[in-house]
Design a protein around this nucleic acid. Structure first.
Lengths: 338, 338
DNA sequence: AGACCCTTTGTTAACGTTCACAGTCATGCC
DNA sequence: GGCATGACTGTGAACGTTAACAAAGGGTCT
């Protein structure tokens, strides 16, 4: 019955006609251009409201060459660390008015990272955050000639790309120093997989603390972050009578260690003290509650978006920076004086 | 020195000129239109390769009105369940050639869901997956007139929106039946927050199993999914001498219960049997390893993308369906015969 | 041979926005 | 009174792609 059945959503021209102005004036109102008469502005705003107009961001992106979308490349967002980091990134980005497009990698080899980056740039993202905790990923990043502002999270030397990370070395040192201060002769270590930079950093901090105290560093036991690998390391440690203190590279493996100790009748902290890393929500309720090192993933996410936006919105690409977030020591009951 | 310094990336017209064809022919090659001579096609492909041309997806989206991007709205992707579901969704979407744009909600009220939906539709997504485990979110979804194909994950009655979910009732029944089959007189329950549909479903299953066995259902203890709330419930349960079996609504709370029991000297499974829900990676290494109900989040993610794509790519909006993924019982050592 | 169809290609016009530029009108100043 | 200045508004052309249509060429069938 009506003159024009409106099937498709209204566009700027419709608003313009409704308000009796040109489409450009509508655009000006939308972009808060100062030189629009107040009376005109309200008329346009009313028309927008009446028609339920919403600006087409795709068309806008085509002409401005900015999508207000940021890409995130991450490895296995099921893990607590990456999940928390991505969450922090997402919150910070949205607060700044940006969308987040995400790619979770299964394998972090050069092609994987390359494909993800291509995929995102094709989509027209304004910038990319790569959560690159593995050496190979960081290397891929360093090699790649990317035309889009990029920031690496937890990456090592990632070429010219700025990096935001938690000070893993300091964390390892904190854990080890704590155990030494309790009077332990030396500290054993269950490390993460060798390709991971975080694992390396924690090993380095542990070694540094031992060296400074003039202690011998025992051979670290290998793990892969999983509770199971911690469990296996724990069985080995339980059979050694001279072990009194263990620094485990993450809380999940620490859980495995605790389980193995419990099975073998090794009391924690009476006979062996254990320190973890991450402070996952469960740690406080392990048996016993786990002393650990907390990482502020929220801060990492916020900082990475900050660095990225400065790169995007500022003109000159600042020198590759490295922003380090300090870890925090969390004292519970899995450690005791020797 | 060169004739034309190419600052900006090449566009279709550049490829066309290089290959000596029209831009439309280039478009046809890119879209795998059948009616292009093989010789022409290879010539275009060579030009694309030579120039390093990449199609501008924004311009494409403007004219096709399809962005090949799917929106995901989720609540706190730090939790294991949502994180795993989103991961599954992301993998399935990428396999189908779709991008994922994500919004993590802090609070799930009507405005929160509404804003997220607006935000995503503004961006021009082709479809939306709402991970809506809370009643309020599902309701918001039912109320909202949305112009975009949508699917709810773990949502209850979400109006006309199709739903993919794990059979929570069946899960609760599985857990309770298992405990009853071990000879326990009745089964206590630590439930999740009342606004959560998953919590309700598990309670319903627990009640149904008890009713079928002709047993009295004790008053369930309230929890909020966190280990701490489980710990508090555990302290209450430890003080009651007639408790021999507990079904806890998720593994994190079960951890808290186990911790409280350990502190109070209540042996599991000797004096009390405990069953959890989720099968998080840690559960196998709790003390004792936790008998629990596994949810296949990967399947949920795949199914939800499947339903969504059928809705997008198929023409008719099929009747609102409800796809239920069965849970699985995982036997460990936290339960024993009475 | 001519009508017809199919394959292959090109031309022009959208899609909905912002940008660059050009107007119009009122105001202030000499 | 004329001219510059500033505020406000409108017109046309991008942005880079796909859709719609037209046209050229070659083959088949009667």
């Amino acid at each position: 019955m009506g003159s024009t059945q409106r099937q498709r959503p209204p566009v700027m021209a419709d608003v313009a006609k409704e308000a009796g102005v040109s489409h450009q004036t509508v655009s000006r109102v939308l972009n808060e251009h100062p030189n629009v008469r107040t009376e005109t502005r309200t008329r346009v705003l009313e028309a927008i409201d009446k028609l339920g107009y919403r600006r087409n961001l795709v068309a806008r992106a085509l002409v401005t060459r900015h999508s207000r979308t940021l890409g995130v490349v991450s490895f296995d967002t099921t893990l607590y660390g990456p999940a928390s980091t991505v969450y922090g990134i997402e919150q910070a980005a949205r607060a700044a008015g940006y969308f987040i497009s995400i790619v979770s990698l299964k394998s972090i080899d050069r092609t994987g990272v390359r494909d993800a980056l291509d995929y995102l740039t094709d989509q027209g993202v304004d910038g990319i955050v790569v959560v690159a905790p593995q050496r190979s990923a960081a290397q891929a990043l360093a090699d790649l000639p990317l035309g889009v502002p990029t920031v690496a999270v937890e990456g090592g030397e990632a070429g010219d790309v700025p990096v935001v990370c938690v000070d893993q070395v300091e964390g390892g040192r904190l854990a080890t120093d704590h155990l030494l201060s309790l009077g332990h002769e030396t500290v054993w270590h269950v490390r993460g997989p060798s390709d991971w930079l975080e694992a390396e950093g924690r090993v380095a901090g542990w070694r540094a603390a031992l060296a400074r105290a003039g202690r011998e560093a025992p051979e670290p036991l290998a793990g892969d972050w999983s509770p199971r690998s911690g469990y296996e390391a724990g069985r080995s440690l339980a059979s050694m009578t001279d072990v009194t203190a263990v620094f485990v590279a993450n809380d999940q493996m620490a859980l495995g260690v605790l389980r193995a100790f419990a099975e073998q009748g090794v009391k924690v902290p009476e006979r062996v003290s254990v320190v973890g890393f991450d402070d996952i929500p469960e740690s406080e309720f392990f048996s016993p509650p786990l002393t650990t090192i907390r990482q502020d993933f929220g801060a990492v996410g916020r900082h990475s978006i900050g660095v990225l936006l400065r790169q995007i919105e500022g003109d000159g690409p600042e020198e590759s920076e490295r922003l380090v977030v300090p870890p925090a020591f969390v004292s519970r009951v899995s450690t005791a004086r020797r």
